[in-house]
């Protein structure tokens, strides 16, 4: 398994590429948003995995014990913010899709293009 290097990076990269591919290749706007979420989650996993310290435990100082190895809590905390950002983005995107559905009657990108093209 040595040739893999740090395997969790591979997991992140594969997840990220799946997300990006869905964003680019799917015509359905809801599926695009799903892809976007997968893409963002992959980055969250990337950050969280970097906080891992081998043999590390949760960063809480137990009574009397000081010589423990702790995981790095900072990336975890940062990702709390990123999760909030991700949720807001998804919510806003879905709200836009609802309004696109109301205005056009479809959420398929190719059909939307056809409608807009005909209106030109």
């Amino acid at each position: 398994m040595q040739w893999l290097g740090l395997w969790h990076y591979w997991a992140v990269i594969i997840l990220m590429m799946i997300g990006l591919y869905i964003v680019i290749a799917r015509d359905n706007l809801v599926k695009k948003v799903m892809g976007l979420s997968i893409f963002q989650v992959s980055v969250i996993m990337f950050y969280v995995s970097t906080g891992k310290v081998e043999g590390g435990t949760a960063p809480i100082i137990p009574e009397g014990g000081h010589d423990l190895v702790y995981s790095n809590p900072l990336p975890h905390v940062l990702m709390l913010t990123a999760i909030v950002v991700g949720i807001s983005t998804t919510a806003l995107a879905l709200a836009l899709i609802v309004r696109i559905q109301e205005a056009y009657g479809t959420v398929e990108d190719d059909e939307l293009n056809a409608i807009d093209g005909a209106a030109l």
Binding site: L20, V23, L29, K32, L36, F39, Q40, T89, L92, A93, L96, I97, R99, I100, A103, Y104, L112, D116
Partner: peptide, 16 residues
């Protein structure tokens, strides 16, 4: 109504 689509495109690219 194209403003909605423009905003959505911007949202996808901006988020990436």
């Amino acid at each position: 109504r194209r403003a909605l689509r423009a905003a959505f495109t911007y949202l996808v690219m901006g988020t990436v």
